[in-house]
Amino acid sequence: MSAQPIHPHTEPDRVPRNAEGIAAALEGERRMEFYRELLAAAPEDAEGVLRRWWCEAMLDTDPSGGRLTEAALNGALPTTSVAAAIARRRAAGLPVE
Rank of each mutant, 00 (worst) to 15 (best):
M1R: 06
S2Q: 06
S2Y: 01
S2T: 11
S2V: 11
A3D: 12
Q4Y: 11
Q4L: 14
P5C: 03
P5A: 04
P8F: 11
P8G: 08
P8A: 13
H9L: 12
H9A: 12
H9W: 08
T10K: 05
T10Y: 08
E11I: 10
P12W: 00
P12F: 00
D13L: 09
R14A: 15
R14I: 14
V15T: 02
V15Y: 06
P16C: 08
R17M: 10
N18W: 04
N18V: 01
A19M: 04
A19V: 09
E20A: 15
G21R: 03
G21N: 06
I22H: 00
I22Y: 00
A23W: 07
A24E: 11
A24I: 07
E27K: 10
E27N: 14
G28I: 06
E29F: 06
E29T: 05
R30W: 10
R31F: 05
R31N: 15
R31D: 15
M32W: 14
M32R: 15
E33M: 08
Y35I: 07
R36T: 05
E37R: 09
E37K: 05
E37W: 02
L38G: 13
L39E: 13
A40I: 04
A40G: 10
A40P: 05
A41E: 06
A42M: 12
E44V: 05
E44L: 06
D45H: 11
D45Q: 13
A46F: 02
A46Q: 15
G48H: 04
V49R: 03
V49I: 06
L50A: 10
R51W: 01
R51A: 03
R51K: 01
R52F: 10
R52Q: 08
W53S: 01
W54P: 01
C55Y: 13
C55K: 10
E56R: 11
E56L: 14
A57P: 06
A57K: 02
M58E: 15
M58K: 10
L59Q: 14
L59F: 15
D60R: 06
T61Q: 01
T61F: 01
D62H: 13
P63W: 03
P63R: 07
S64E: 00
S64T: 00
G65E: 03
G65I: 07
G66D: 11
G66C: 08
R67C: 06
R67K: 13
L68W: 05
L68C: 01
L68P: 00
T69E: 13
A71K: 14
A71D: 15
A72I: 05
L73R: 02
L73V: 01
N74Y: 00
G75S: 08
G75H: 04
G75T: 08
G75L: 11
G75W: 09
G75A: 11
A76G: 02
A76P: 00
T79H: 09
T80Y: 02
T80L: 03
S81H: 09
S81N: 10
A83C: 06
A83F: 04
A83H: 06
A84H: 02
A84E: 07
A84Y: 02
A85T: 05
A85V: 07
I86S: 06
I86A: 08
A87Y: 07
A87V: 12
R89K: 00
R89C: 05
R89V: 04
R89W: 01
R90H: 01
A92W: 10
A92Y: 09
G93D: 10
L94T: 12
P95L: 02
E97K: 11
